[in-house]
Nucleic acid binder design. Structure first.
Lengths: 151, 151
DNA sequence: AAGGTATCTAGTGTATAAAATGCATCTACG
DNA sequence: CGTAGATGCATTTTATACACTAGATACCTT
């Protein structure tokens, strides 16, 4: 298995940049689309409130990480996730999975045995959220030097 | 100023859905693009680590909210932000702004007076991060019922 | 073959450490 | 006195470490 920074070709970097540009353009488009619905002026307070609401699901530790793990790695069982999310305690993982289930991002699936196994899977909503966040992760990989640009 | 849920037409809802689908496809594309660089197999652990790193900046309370505020509302001063981020204490805002500055997302600009004023502004990196997160916010607006679907 | 030990599963219980919040206060300026 | 931009400190909330449970299988010894 490869590990650490990877080399990326000029051609592929351009592809990534293009993708990032598209998403950025899209964000702008969505923003203007929504703001158009305000008859009078752009209601900054309301927009900020919406954003705060949107992020409230994510903005406690480990929630994004759990989402990313299931998005990248697919359905996983409890201890598999614990292995992937290095440093998380089983107590915390248990609690956070519960809140993710309550928020409709994750589904808890019991496969009856013996042995009984439990797997966690993203709901449709969770997959959408993961997909929408993944360009951000892609950009941060470059910003954090996880991926080398071309020489 | 309009406030509360807004009405959105069928046509515009379809536009948003199409945008979301496109971005979702894009996320998948970026993902496979990056994974292609692993010679052997898809290194799930490394991918998850990268995602954890990417989110580590965001996954403490208020960081995303500060980012969104500056992205949506433009440059703001301390007490303006406090007004927009309802419920944040000045203690917490102060601390969080400091970490945002340390993470390179936000710039602290002192305008010398008198009276001396301090404004906070997104760096280029912060604007990029905000842009990449805004489609997520747009989607969550719909999911959270901030925008009504067509009748 | 019986009994003991070990392991793997998906978690809980509990004490402690770290983070966020409320509220009071400070400084510099007009 | 009021405003802007904070800071100090006590309390509450959240996260962590670490030990432990329960049901099942598997291996090891006498």
């Amino acid at each position: 298995m490869a590990s650490g920074p990877l080399r990326i070709s000029k051609r592929d970097l351009r592809r990534v940049e293009k993708s990032v540009d598209e998403v950025m353009g899209l964000g702008k488009e969505i923003r203007t689309l929504f703001s158009r619905y305000n008859d009078e002026e752009y209601d900054v307070g309301w927009e900020v409130d919406s954003a705060v609401d949107a992020f409230s699901v994510l903005s406690s530790r480990w929630t994004t990480e759990i989402l990313a793990t299931l998005y990248i790695a697919g359905d996983r069982r409890f201890n598999e996730m614990r292995g992937l999310l290095r440093g998380i305690s089983s107590r915390t993982l248990s609690d956070k999975l519960t809140t993710c289930v309550e928020n409709g991002l994750v589904e808890r699936i019991v496969e009856d045995g013996p042995p009984v196994r439990v797997k966690y899977s993203l709901t449709v909503h969770g997959r959408r959220a993961g997909a929408l966040l993944s360009p951000f992760v892609g950009y941060m990989k470059i910003y954090n030097g996880k991926i080398d640009g071309p020489a």
